[in-house]
């Protein structure tokens, strides 16, 4: 943690991801993993904070959850969530946010909508599924192939979330130039 500005951004975004889980969760029948707006928050954190700050924001949130605070969608919290079927997806939020941030950060001062969308899909869907599906298969004892089919239920919803996250990130970065990771980095490294 180099400076106080980074520390504050990480803390506030960890809280933002928690707050986005408040509207509630939707359990698709036959799957133990709920649908939430929180992955939308994870993608946004990546697109706005950049690689390591985004990853750290997710770590902070997960630490608070592990400590027992009900910050996950539907008021879930406690160490129990890391023993449940969705544990892999939760852990996957960390590299997912980091990859989204990395792709956006490489876009320089004006990352376009295509890059933002690509970043959200690769980090917010690709990486998270890659971490989540094997763990879900392991915990539930359902074969990997079948788990992948079960998880496909989430794909349309997650694609919509990725598109929304890209659009919202673009809107925020137009209104607030410091919301571009590269710009923020540039302004704060000389300190």
């Amino acid at each position: 943690m180099k400076n106080a500005g980074d520390l504050a951004r990480v803390s506030v975004f960890a809280a933002l991801i928690a707050v986005l889980g408040l509207p509630g969760t939707l359990n698709v029948f036959g799957n133990a993993v709920p649908i939430t707006l929180q992955t939308f928050g994870v993608m946004l954190a990546g697109a706005i904070l950049g690689t390591w700050r985004a990853a750290l924001a997710v770590v902070v949130l997960l630490v608070l959850v592990a400590v027992g605070l009900p910050l996950l969608a539907g008021g879930r919290g406690g160490l129990g969530v890391f023993a449940a079927a969705s544990a892999g997806y939760l852990i996957g939020w960390i590299p997912g946010a980091a990859l989204t941030g990395w792709i956006v950060q490489r876009g320089g001062r004006n990352p376009g909508i295509v890059r933002l969308l690509l970043a959200c899909v690769a980090g917010g869907i690709g990486v998270i599924y890659l971490c989540g599906i094997p763990v879900q298969a392991l915990v539930t004892g359902i074969p990997l192939g079948k788990t992948m089919l079960l998880s496909a239920v989430f794909l349309p919803g997650d694609l919509i979330k990725a598109v929304l996250a890209a659009l919202v990130a673009r809107g925020v970065q137009r209104a607030y130039p410091d919301a571009v990771p590269a710009t923020w980095q540039e302004r704060h490294t000389w300190r």
């Binding site: 400076n3 500005g5 980074d6 520390l7 504050a8 506030v12 209104a175 607030y176 919301a179």
Partner: peptide, 15 residues
């Protein structure tokens, strides 16, 4: 998100 960022950056300056 813009509101959250404003809050974060003000907090960062205060810190």
């Amino acid at each position: 998100v813009v509101g959250a960022l404003r809050h974060a950056d003000a907090l960062g300056e205060a810190l």
